[in-house]
Every structure is written in structure tokens, then in C-alpha cells.
Design a binder for these strands. Structure first.
Lengths: 158, 158
DNA sequence: CCATATGATCAGTTTTGCTGATCATATGGC
DNA sequence: GCCATATGATCAGCAAAACTGATCATATGG
């Protein structure tokens, strides 16, 4: 038995399901981040830099699918909040090597807790095995779509 | 062996995977709709009305998670393009009963082909059984999150 | 060493979504 | 039946968001 909340014509439509899942997940996350004044992308940027200190802004743009001029603003915000620093990049003097500050590390750690909580709540209807399967399948789909997209880009710029 | 396109710290993050999948799917769809001058939401509205003639604009807003003032514009666009009509609603004279025109039916049928093609291409890395499983799991997650969200709304307005 | 490409930034514009108001009608208590 | 309140649709105007094109500094490959 299923509720009436998902229209029948969209139950079989992956695009709708994925878009709706994204909407629900990011609305929840937005609420969790509200009082910090930051957005999901700010959190994502900190997550990336935390694991790979020294990333350039362009690297973040590529991974997150964000425009470079938009990323300037995002990094401005984070630097203004004292959560990261733009440091000189060892290998390229045009670029910045982004580094978390101590406050950035702490904020990220602290914020990770409710973020993971929300994700777990969302995943509650699945068994642990199903969760692993879902993750694996999504990874496979996204990875393969990214490869295809990169190939197309290469084909246009030979 | 996996490519480097998904950062390791995000492979286990459902939010990132879902957001990325949505980004990839809707970018493809945008391209497919480009020459029509319409967007994904226009297509979604036509899909809904086609199955359930007589829906009101508010009904569409709820299902699609779109603001009511935004929906006015979307329906304006579709009516202007001759794809649907606002007809008087039998049970509520404030509301419009939305109906596809003949042109709307045709455009939807024609557009459905590339839309489904893109979805199939995206799903290519999964076996038929896996696709069914993915769809079922996503439906379960979205449905349950919608129920939770509706409960919270009820709790605020007792 | 020069031509071209790339990283970052900024000003200015376009696009988008939303707020709050308005009008018409509906609904529920009395 | 009547009024208070809620709801559907619309609009004008505002505010945030994203993009365009330019600029400057530096890198890279021939």
C-alpha cells in the first residue's frame, strides 16, 4: 500500500523521484544550516577542503558544478566568516590554495552531526543492506554519467 | 576500479550523490527542451494534466514544490504556447480546471521520446532488476519523507 | 619568447523566486 | 441566511542568485 503523495505517473519516472529526493534532502539541510547563515554549498566546500587542503577554487567549481564567479562569492563568505584562508598556491601563483582555519574545522565537525542525522532519518525506511546497495548504484550511475559528459566535452574540443 | 570523478569523501554521502544525479539528469533534459523554449517544470505540468485533466494550479504547486505565483507564470507560458487551456472549474469558481489542448497532447507525446531516451541512457549502467529496485527504494524514501513533512506541517497547524 | 590558455576577480545585467496586496469565491460556526 | 476566516488566482515590485564579458596576472606549449 502506498500513499497518494507521489502521483502514479511519476512513480516510474526516475527524474521526478531524484528531483524530489534532492528537494527534500536539501530543504532539510537548509533548515539545519539556517542559523549559521551559510548554505549547502558552503558546507560542501568545507567538506572538500578539509579532506584535500590546498584545492583551488576552480577545482571546487568542477566538482560541485558551480560557476567560477559564484565560487568567488562562496569563498568570500567563508573567508569572511573566518572558516578558511586563501593561501598562496605553491605551484601556480595565479591560484589560491584553500585551507581550513581552526574555526573552520570545528564548525564543520559540529555541523556534520545534524547533517548526518538528517541523512539517517531520510534513509530510515531502508535496511542497512539496501542503503549500501542504493549508494553503490547511485555512485555507478553518477560516475558513468560524468564520464559520458566529459567525453562529450572532449569531442567538442578535440 | 572507479574513476576520480566523484571525490572519495562524497561517495558515501547520499545528499551529494542525489544532488549530482539530479544535476546531470536535468542538464540533459534542459538541452532536450531547449529549442521549445520551455523548461522541465512546463513538461512536468503537462505530464500531470494529461493524466488528470481538471487539476487546479494549486494542485500542481503542491506536487511539484513550486510557489503559486511562479505557477501562474508557468501556466501563462503554456497557455500562450497553445498547449493548455484554463477552463472554469466545475466545483470552485475561483479555480481553473486545466486541460491540455490537442497541440499540448501532441507536443507532450513528441517530447516524451527524447526524455525517456535520456533516462534510459542514464540508467544504462544498471541491470533491469537493479533499475526496478532503485525505483522502488527511491519511491519508498520519497514517500516516507513526504509523509514526515506533512506530519510536521500538521503539528504546526493543529 | 610569443601566442594562447587558465585562475581569479569585478561590474553590470539578467533571471528567478518570493512578498505582500488584491479580488473573487468558498466554508464553517452561529 | 450571515459574517469571519480561509483559499485560489493574479499582479507589482523587490531581492537574491546566477551569468556575461572584461580585466589582470601568470602559466604553458610551440
Amino acid at each position: 500500500m502506498t500513499s497518494e503523495l507521489i502521483p502514479a505517473e511519476f512513480r516510474g519516472n526516475l527524474g521526478f523521484l531524484v528531483a524530489k529526493a534532492k528537494q527534500l534532502l536539501s530543504d532539510e539541510l537548509d533548515v539545519a544550516l539556517r542559523d549559521s547563515g551559510l548554505q549547502i554549498r558552503h558546507f560542501a566546500v568545507l567538506s572538500l577542503i578539509r579532506r584535500r587542503a590546498g584545492l583551488r577554487q576552480t577545482d571546487l567549481c568542477e566538482v560541485l558544478g558551480v560557476d567560477r564567479t559564484t565560487m568567488v562569492k562562496v569563498v568570500d563568505d567563508l573567508e569572511g566568516a573566518g572558516l578558511l584562508r586563501r593561501e598562496p598556491h605553491a605551484a601556480d601563483r595565479r591560484a589560491h590554495a584553500l585551507q581550513l582555519t581552526e574555526a573552520g574545522e570545528q564548525w564543520h565537525s559540529r555541523t556534520l552531526v545534524p547533517v548526518m542525522d538528517h541523512e539517517q532519518q531520510f534513509l530510515a525506511p531502508l535496511s542497512p543492506g539496501e542503503r549500501a546497495l542504493l549508494q553503490e548504484m547511485l555512485t555507478r550511475l553518477v560516475d558513468s554519467a560524468l564520464v559520458r559528459s566529459a567525453d562529450q566535452k572532449l569531442a567538442r574540443h578535440p
